[in-house]
Nucleic acid binder design. Sequence first.
DNA 1: AAGATTCGCGCATACCTATGCAATGCAGTC
DNA 2: GACTGCATTGCATAGGTATGCGCGAATCTT
Lengths: 347, 347
Amino acid sequence: MRSAGRVTSVDLAQTLGIAQSTVSRALSNDTRIAVKTREKVQALAAELGYTPNAFARSLSTQQSKLIGIVMSEMTSPFYPFVLEKLTSQLHELGWRVLLFSTDSDHDVDDLLPLVLEYQCDGLIIASANLSSHMSETLIRHGTPVVLFNRYASDASSSAVCCDNRGGGRLVADYLLASGHTRYAYIAGRENTSTNRDRELGYTARLEAAGFAVRRETGNFTYEAGFAAMGRLLSTRDAPDAVFCANDITAIGAIDAARELGVQVGHEVSVIGFDDIPMAAWSAYKLTTVRQPVAAMIASSLEMLIGAIEGQVLGSNLRFIPGSLVERGSVRLEAQGKGRKAKGKANE
Amino acid sequence: MRSAGRVTSVDLAQTLGIAQSTVSRALSNDTRIAVKTREKVQALAAELGYTPNAFARSLSTQQSKLIGIVMSEMTSPFYPFVLEKLTSQLHELGWRVLLFSTDSDHDVDDLLPLVLEYQCDGLIIASANLSSHMSETLIRHGTPVVLFNRYASDASSSAVCCDNRGGGRLVADYLLASGHTRYAYIAGRENTSTNRDRELGYTARLEAAGFAVRRETGNFTYEAGFAAMGRLLSTRDAPDAVFCANDITAIGAIDAARELGVQVGHEVSVIGFDDIPMAAWSAYKLTTVRQPVAAMIASSLEMLIGAIEGQVLGSNLRFIPGSLVERGSVRLEAQGKGRKAKGKANE
DNA sequence: AAGATTCGCGCATACCTATGCAATGCAGTC
DNA sequence: GACTGCATTGCATAGGTATGCGCGAATCTT
């Protein structure tokens, strides 16, 4: 009954008194088919509202034209943007998107069977981890993967990341140059390479310049930033420069500072990471490191599709540099509080 | 070569010297298969990493187990939350999600062929429009649809919405009760039922109480709210109560007010709609109408899956009431500015 | 005009799973 | 011992598309 409504290529063929194969070729603009028949077929197809069955096609061609996207933290402000760009670009390139979501806490292992059942031609994993066991399974199945903004420690799968470590260094240099002296870092989730690298770049640079870095735990959320900043400011010798693992944490931190009557951009400087739209709001004017999202997405797709079409499965890591965007949340001139000379010298 | 890696049910059958049909039945725990063979098959399947081909299965069963989700405004803060909940719930229920994104400006018509090619068993359209022509096509194909937070004027497809009109009334009553006198509305995108209904409920109630409502255009974004509030406050006789089409607009409005030195919650009251996480931030403390997201999603899935399984295709509209959550952005006691008595009386 | 070439199309099959129906083997019954 | 009945398994086919290969007809060649 259901299939009664569905028009198939066989139906078209029978109506026109030709072979199904001719219909198939006519619809794919095969040059071997005479222009006249081709037009006849296409006209009838349009008239009857024929829609090819992607499943049957995939079975035949061994290509699903499906890309799986696994995403966690979908509700944090950065990733929806990524997801939208990814899907719209994939659509333009003729691919469809099978969406999976997971909590970032554990690996995506349990989702993998589903991805494989649906014969995804490729897989993009954003802000989630892939166990090395699974990555082997994928390689065995010949399904290319690229990790987005995360990379596997064993380098078993390709990945595209913002140069998080470089970003951390950028922040350190900027804060040093403007004469800050008491540094802190509010972390993101601990098991993420993003958090690790941002911290590493920041801290290494500062320690090389002779400064210690106080560390507060966090998890990439507003609430965590709010709480951490509260802790930082409630101590004697509170920091005058706070780098946050991402923007939303930074915004939480700013709100906490305000609540305590501490002026952001004067008494304490705050820097974030991502450059989400909110960072530009007049309420925050957050100085931050902009992730080169467009370039990262382009790069991911290029790598993924290259791997699918060329079957070059070699793993490949790419780090794309971010850029510092200056707004109002950092005190620029040293105000006699810190060792100005040292800060400047380090630039 | 690709298929060399793929293990099929035929492979299993040959290895075990049994028929493919037996394998199929063994893996689906068919009771007719002897326990011993069943175990043998399942063991081998696990060993070889057999993954059933969902396409072949769908071809055979005429069920794709795929739900298409069409979403626009993915980057506005409300919808990622919806998307995440939808996909995770669908996964739990055994469905997969095919994701399509579109800009909310035009209909989803161009995406429809893709949805049909992939034989989606059902379709959820969030914050986007479906032309009546397309809705007919879907009915003809027997594909159930439910619109999320939008409904078609011709009632040709099912829909689940927040009771936006009721929400607008809630806001009006609340503002009247607290003695406001100069009302304004900052609109969302004009072609949306959400915007229309929120405005209608609000305005109708206020006009019934004898108040006029000043209207500013908007489009559900921060920037639009910011600009609109700027316009409102730059006039003589500026409003003391502003209802915004959604939270993000309201937050833009609040920032604009602050920029102009106007105290929100005292000189001007602002109310939003949605109750996104940001609304609770200490920087905003936005009083707003909470959308019953969980209930809306549950209801959508219930309707959709009911339609898929029962083939009851009747169109069905469901409106779920929201609730006012009080925070700090509304002045509560009349401050001698307005006709307090009248406001109170209307509660 | 007969053979060589090209053009247009059809036949048959692969892709993989699910399932109705037939068949087999075996135990139990009278 | 023959027959009924049940428990297991196999056979065959559907589902819709793409494509290698072959065939007939039309065009061209000389």
